[in-house]
Design a protein around this nucleic acid. Structure first.
Length: 313
DNA sequence: CTTATGACCTGATAGC
DNA sequence: TGCTATCAGGTCATAA
């Protein structure tokens, strides 16, 4: 479900609850959504993705040492690159959480209850028990993910996190420049939207914000990257930074499932100009918005504001 | 190399 | 009410 703004909102919420807190114990209720640094390829692939090398079974034998999931450790910080979160322990060990489509990282303080789902706790795959300095309970954190496209990954230290786990990811979308986009996208027949969705080009943009940023930049999503010039790339980069920033301020976009670490919805969907508005009038010119598949994803654009074939300097 | 396709999962919703 | 089909915020392996 989540793109950069949603993940950043979760990061802030989790950080406010767990930084400086000790993890008393960890329970892995589904082993196959956890990948360790020792697992072959599975979990540590090119674009920072999730699935095992066979594209399906992610069952990994053996128990994950609790310490690898920060049991007995203290949380020193919560970082983010693109759509991925990393809990960094005082020991240096890191736990990466990727939310996939339906994942949530939820935290409940002492005496609070985790937000409940209609299906109960059936999809609560990893549970961290938190402990105050005096040893008293400080609540719990849970990785919940019904569809299981997400996952939890261990790294022995920050060097591995950055150098291996996150090595293939492009620059974070919140601070990306037009120059970076131009260089990493290359010049080919590939649709500009497809390039923006490629996490090796740019980390953090997904289907919603690709459409929103391209609309605001006046670029048709199917524009081949070979037709893009430096000024247009700069405009696209600027609109990406802008849209993501505004969405973070609104707590992200909640379409159905998404909530922050405390179970609250975000309201940025109210500001969507194109996503989810196919067939309605363009907010700028009133033209009926078109929809179709680009890069195999549902895409919405304004045929008038985002004319295909327009010159792009 | 690039690009498209089907696959991975479950839940919510729309339509009959 | 109950069934079925469709769709979803992500990313992968594989084939062409």
């Amino acid at each position: 479900m989540p793109e950069l703004p949603e993940v950043e909102t979760v990061r802030r919420g989790v950080a406010s609850m767990v930084v400086g807190v000790r993890i008393a114990s960890v329970t892995v209720r589904r082993r196959d959504i956890v990948a360790t640094e020792l697992d072959p390829l599975g979990g540590f692939s090119r674009a920072g993705g999730i699935r095992g090398a066979d594209g399906r079974g992610r069952a990994r034998p053996g128990r994950v040492p609790g310490a690898w999931l920060l049991a007995g450790d203290e949380v020193a910080g919560v970082e983010r690159l693109g759509k991925q979160l990393a809990l960094v322990g005082a020991s240096g060990r890191c736990v990466v959480v990727h939310l996939g489509m339906s994942g949530q990282l939820l935290v409940a303080g002492r005496g609070e209850r985790l937000p409940t789902a209609t299906w109960g706790s059936a999809h609560d795959h990893v549970v961290w028990r938190l402990e105050g300095r005096d040893g008293s309970s400080a609540g719990r954190m849970v990785f919940r993910d019904p569809r299981r496209f997400g996952g939890v990954f261990t790294s022995p230290d920050r060097e591995h996190l950055v150098g291996v786990r996150w090595a293939a990811l492009g620059p974070d979308a919140l601070t990306v420049t037009g120059e970076q986009l131009a260089e990493r996208s290359g010049r080919s027949a590939r649709a500009t939207k497809a390039a923006l969705l490629d996490q090796r080009v740019l980390a953090g943009v997904g289907n919603i914000y690709a459409d929103e940023a391209l609309f605001r930049a006046g670029v048709h999503p199917m524009t081949p990257t070979s037709a893009m010039g430096p000024e247009t790339w700069e405009a696209v980069a600027a609109r990406i930074r802008e849209v993501l920033g505004a969405s973070i301020e609104a707590g992200g976009s909640t379409l159905r499932d998404y909530t922050d670490a405390q179970g609250r919805a975000g309201v940025y969907a109210l500001s969507h100009a194109v996503y989810g508005r196919a067939g309605l009038g363009c907010v700028v010119c009133g033209t009926v918005l078109e929809t179709g598949a680009v890069a195999q994803r549902t895409t919405v654009w304004c045929p008038s504001c985002q004319e295909l074939g327009r010159a792009h300097g």
